[in-house]
Amino acid sequence: MAIEWRPSAEIETLKARARLLARVREFFAKRDVLEVETPTLGQGGSTDVHLASLSALTRTDKGLRRLWLQTSPEFHMKRLLAAGSGPIFQLARSFRDGEVGGRHNIEFTMLEWYRPAMTLPALIDETAALVNALMPGAPQVVKRYRYRSLFETHLAIDPFTAPLEALRHLAEQRGQMAPQSLADEPRETCLDLLMSVVIEPTLGRGEISAVVDYPASQAALARRHQDEEGEWVASRFELYVAGMELANGYDELTNPFEQRARFVEDNAERARQGLEPVDIDERLLAALEHGMPDGSGVALGIDRLIQLALGKARLEEVLAFSTPRC
């Protein structure tokens, strides 16, 4: 049986990809945002229950140590911010185990940037401007939607107050899952399924859609605030084009004590779900304790944006070698 050695993408596609990446660098150079490079390996990983971090046992000067392949360059970049870097961006190799499909690859490129003193609404506008810079034919209109309003419009439920059993039943029904398949799943799993199957495909159609005011439990490394109804929500957004999630932005949490508490709670939830714990990044927490400037940051799946810009059906078509061919 012949071994498939050829690249996943056509050579002309890779040339087009290189031109688009050059536009990214030009976009940030015009805005005086510094390009940085940070390690792919770190002494801590992402504790997020919804992410599967990869790790490696490495021989170091301190003996055999486990280091974590980064799910995004966030932790190292925040340490640079705390050291006084000012606004920064990075095109970083990132890794998430088990993420394979038409829009996913275990190894991928993340475009991440941080803007000290910039508000979240301003960062939404800048993210949309980047999309337009790489996709001249993309919609110019940016529309903002509250998470709660989307669920009320598309599913006739309030995601903050609906009983868990009702959410499980609706998620099984609309997600075309087997009866009782979500019987033991938590609230967030049901909401994520409904969001991805029912709501996301409607977003970014003839516009760039920005979703805001996610449940506070989905804040991760973002601040929280109270919405119009007095509900605590995450100070973050997600950006969609053509039914595809492209970016996830935060009003960044800078409190080291709250961040540590979230990491600990994540690992407790991982234990409840039978998942392996992930080492907490103590260097990030030390940087936050030193003092990181207030501001916003965003992570954008640049492979997905290139896929859209070049009109490709699958992510592997814009990667030199996708996971099955690496």
Rank of each mutant, 00 (worst) to 15 (best):
D213S: 14
E269G: 11
G291P: 07
L41C: 11
T119Q: 12
A122H: 04
T189R: 13
T127I: 01
V100S: 04
A22G: 12
A234K: 00
E152R: 09
R187I: 06
L246Q: 00
A56N: 12
M292V: 12
A234G: 02
I11S: 10
D294C: 15
A320F: 07
K30Y: 10
Y147M: 10
S181W: 09
Q173S: 13
I199W: 04
I306H: 04
S72G: 05
K78N: 04
R187K: 15
L170V: 09
R103P: 00
G243T: 06
W113L: 01
Y147Q: 12
A52R: 13
K78L: 10
K62Y: 15
A156M: 14
G243R: 09
G291T: 12
E35Q: 11
A18G: 08
V131K: 00
G230A: 08
R66V: 10
R6K: 15
Y250S: 03
T38C: 06
G45F: 00
L253Q: 02
V33S: 06
R187D: 11
L111V: 04
D213T: 09
R115N: 07
V241F: 07
A261D: 11
F95W: 08
D192Y: 02
K15E: 11
E185P: 00
V141K: 14
A286I: 10
H290W: 14
C190A: 15
Y114Q: 05
V100N: 04
R205Q: 15
A122Y: 08
R262L: 03
A299T: 02
G102D: 11
G102N: 12
G84M: 08
V264P: 04
L275F: 06
Q226V: 14
